[in-house]
């Protein structure tokens, strides 16, 4: 329907964005009827998302014409932005930004470097930046989920953690079940993506490759390569972030710092 109404591709794109945003707002209003208030967060996220992707798209047009090494800076900037987003999700965790930055940089960064070195990612800026950004974005999501789950589990089990500490347990031993649960829960989307690839969803990258003339079979196999890389980057990021956050949850005197509030007088 929209295709018939608009001839300019830019106007068509904006109209399509408007329809998609309306669908998101409708869901938000349905949630509101059940007293789930996400209005502000949803509206801000929609406006920000559209503005960011438009600005980045414009910058990419300019940068994609640049030399290959500029992709390193683009991916580094994306990593910092991803760490900031993750840290906002886990803002009650001490040092969340630094933990997220180290974890995403090491997790996604090492997989991007390894795969580029192995030849699984082309060094052309037009390939490295989009594929790299997918790895960073998924690492960010996994990291946010892991930190949030770890925080909520520890908050819900402060008594058990402190009972274990009071018995002379090492801090890492007291939170081991919660680290494990956070790691497993945060990787569920990445595992499900791998499981359902081609059956439940056909990612856009594959469609794009087919449209740009790649053989469909190669496009399909490459899609698996990307999803497997996403799994590796997400898993490594989460492993690093849960290890780092576990250390920051305790003081040097092995006291639990990650508490819902300061210990009240009892």
């Amino acid at each position: 329907m929209l295709n018939g109404l608009f001839k300019s591709q830019l106007i068509l794109g904006l109209a399509q964005a408007g329809v998609a945003a309306l669908a998101a707002i409708a869901v938000m209003l349905l949630a509101r009827r059940r007293h789930i208030h996400l209005e502000r967060e949803t509206l801000v996220a929609l406006v920000r998302g559209l503005a960011q992707i438009t600005i980045v798209g414009s910058i990419l047009v300019l940068m994609l014409r640049g030399p290959r090494w500029t992709s390193v800076f683009i991916l580094a900037a994306m990593t910092v932005a991803a760490a900031a987003t993750s840290a906002r999700r886990a803002k009650r965790i001490p040092g969340a930004f630094r933990v997220s930055l180290y974890a995403i940089a090491a997790g996604a960064g090492s997989v991007i470097a390894l795969m580029t070195f192995a030849g699984a990612i082309d060094t052309a800026i037009t390939a490295l930046v989009p594929v790299g950004s997918m790895l960073i974005a998924n690492a960010m999501n996994t990291n946010g989920l892991a930190l949030d789950r770890f925080r909520s589990d520890v908050h819900a089990h402060v008594g058990h953690v402190e009972a274990a500490l009071a018995l002379g347990a090492a801090p890492e031993e007291t939170v081991a079940p919660y680290v494990q649960a956070a790691y497993q829960a945060s990787l569920i989307p990445a595992i499900d993506n791998l499981r359902s690839l081609g059956i439940v969803w056909i990612p856009g990258l594959m469609a794009g490759m087919v449209l740009s003339g790649s053989p469909p079979l190669y496009a399909a196999v490459y899609q698996f390569v990307v999803i497997a890389m996403i799994f590796a980057a997400s898993g490594l990021t989460c492993l690093i972030s849960t290890t780092l956050i576990r250390e920051r949850a305790f003081s040097p005197a092995e006291q639990l710092l990650l508490r819902p509030d300061a210990a009240p007088a009892r």
């Binding site: 058990h160 402190e162 009972a163 500490l165 009071a166 018995l167 002379g168 090492a170 005197a253 092995e254």
Partner: peptide, 19 residues
């Protein structure tokens, strides 16, 4: 060391918090 101290000064809390 905190772990040594906590073993020497054992604490039983108001709630048992069994594992």
């Amino acid at each position: 060391p905190p772990r040594v101290l906590r073993r020497r000064l054992g604490m039983v809390m108001q709630t048992p918090f069994l594992f």
